[in-house]
Design a protein around this nucleic acid. Sequence first.
DNA 1: TTGAAAGCGCTAACAG
DNA 2: CTGTTAGCGCTTTCAA
Lengths: 342, 342
Amino acid sequence: MAGTRGRRGGVGVVDLARELGVSTATVSRALNGSDAVRPELAQRVREYAEQRGYVANRLARALSANTSRAFVGFVIPYVDTPAYSAVAAECARLLSRDGTQMILSITENDPEREHRQLRELLASRVAGLIVSPSTYVTRASKELLRNAPVVELHRASGIAAPGVFSDDEQVITECVLHLAALGHRRIAYLGTPRELSNGAARLRGLRRGLELAGLTERNCATHLSEPTAENGYTGANQLLGAAEKPTALLVGGGSLSQGAARAVRAAGLRLPEQLSLIVYGDPTWFALSDPPLTTVVVGYAELADQAAALLQRRLDGEPVEPRPYLVKPELVNAGSTGPPPA
Amino acid sequence: MAGTRGRRGGVGVVDLARELGVSTATVSRALNGSDAVRPELAQRVREYAEQRGYVANRLARALSANTSRAFVGFVIPYVDTPAYSAVAAECARLLSRDGTQMILSITENDPEREHRQLRELLASRVAGLIVSPSTYVTRASKELLRNAPVVELHRASGIAAPGVFSDDEQVITECVLHLAALGHRRIAYLGTPRELSNGAARLRGLRRGLELAGLTERNCATHLSEPTAENGYTGANQLLGAAEKPTALLVGGGSLSQGAARAVRAAGLRLPEQLSLIVYGDPTWFALSDPPLTTVVVGYAELADQAAALLQRRLDGEPVEPRPYLVKPELVNAGSTGPPPA
DNA sequence: TTGAAAGCGCTAACAG
DNA sequence: CTGTTAGCGCTTTCAA
């Protein structure tokens, strides 16, 4: 009974301690690389633990050391798009180097679910959070976020926290100028709602682009909706079916782009002769189109690296400025833009 | 000092107990819906806890109740493809209904990483695991898996555990018959390695299809490689560049299909006049192709539902047969297959 | 440098 | 039905 211990995993610190003839404190210290233990003893403990196949109970560890890096929460609205799945994968990879496990929470953009998940995550004593807030974050959720080491991703909730975002404003401006330079004067914009921080950023970019191109908002029909492929499809159809047909369609958002691309194809428009099209996301999605689509390419890996690094710095206690950290997207011309039809 | 308690979260069971004038045991029982507490008291406790904003420390809970459903591990080789990301999302959603959090681990198909992650997961006392094993699972990993409630997904490692898979064998047979019926006699197959359980299943389907079609393996060049889009691209090029050109290309695997589709497009082959093509995965990926590609559609949501349900049943202690649970994929004809060129 | 002992916050015997 | 008392497995004072 006493000898068996650890019904489940097996060896525990007390076993090691007993078998080595030292105290559990010493074992713990040795295992955690405390410098307050004679190096050779520490070494011996570690070797023995290894050989004995010891693996620490992370729950106990995290519970005891009221602070620990055992878990980090990753809270996102969706995961079925690379903007999230690719970043999630990369973050999990980076965090696991530190021995940190990532708890994945999908809110489905539902503020209530989000709030519940955040509570649960905090109840699991996560060391920190990487969060992509839902469109309408509740006051209560913000309160929770304020009191935890948070790094925002893709979207900002308005709290004072560092956040990693793609520099949408700048690239959308570039897109508009690109189109205007080709001669377009009736540009349609399909994007995410302004309540979404990235939606707002893209709209700023749009406005700035139009201004710099000497165009007004009257030159630009816009359609804003939550980022789903479905919305992209219907939104694009709506814009393309307007009385004053646009000669170019600019889509601000990855999922919207998926749907929009399908809508354009279904409409049977020849690119770029009948319509110039710029989409958002990963060019490999659009590689099968003919011609391949000119795409705003967002560096998901870089976003992930930044997010993970910022969080780790916060957890290390290093000061991290609570500001946006922007990653520059790249406008990759693949042939779906050209002069407007005569 | 005594009154403050809970440096971090705030209220704990002892606070509630003290403030309500009952014991912590009673509080715990009430909160966990034990029937061994007077209903009205239980009610009062719950209401008070709610009002007090109590939220249980899941670490403590899980540590104490040596069994708990706090966490479940989700171990997959990749997540940047819907075969995994979509299933992960859906599983996270389903598990969260039970209050279970999902720890996401990406192995990158590396057996060593996989083993380490499994150990760490078990060290976190996960209640169970949903695992998509790497191509070459180590003996040690299998040992770990054998001693935990595991449900396999997409791929089997050979241990006695329930697993949820798409019925690749059957659908690949159907594909071959479809092509043969159109008149094809030189079919190329691009698939995953036979070391992968799904690779083996697809090969079985291939062989059976050829046989039923009265063809031999000499009618069918095959190329097997790890499932990445890159490999799909090079593999397809290789098959298409062979001396005896195939008239049809069948791709068994989602990522391979992505690459293969690009290769076919790059080769400038007209579908289905010059080549018949069947791919694997989500048809929306291939919707932009002209014509859209005939696709083997795998029901990711259904896979996820099954996997989550099986795991939950196992955790409930219900007996679950350690066998494959197959989900039928669907062959959706979208126009990229037709009679072979004359 | 090491050990004894007190928790971390919760659940679960065991009594009453 | 309810309370007392041990733990879960680890870390971390506090002394020695």
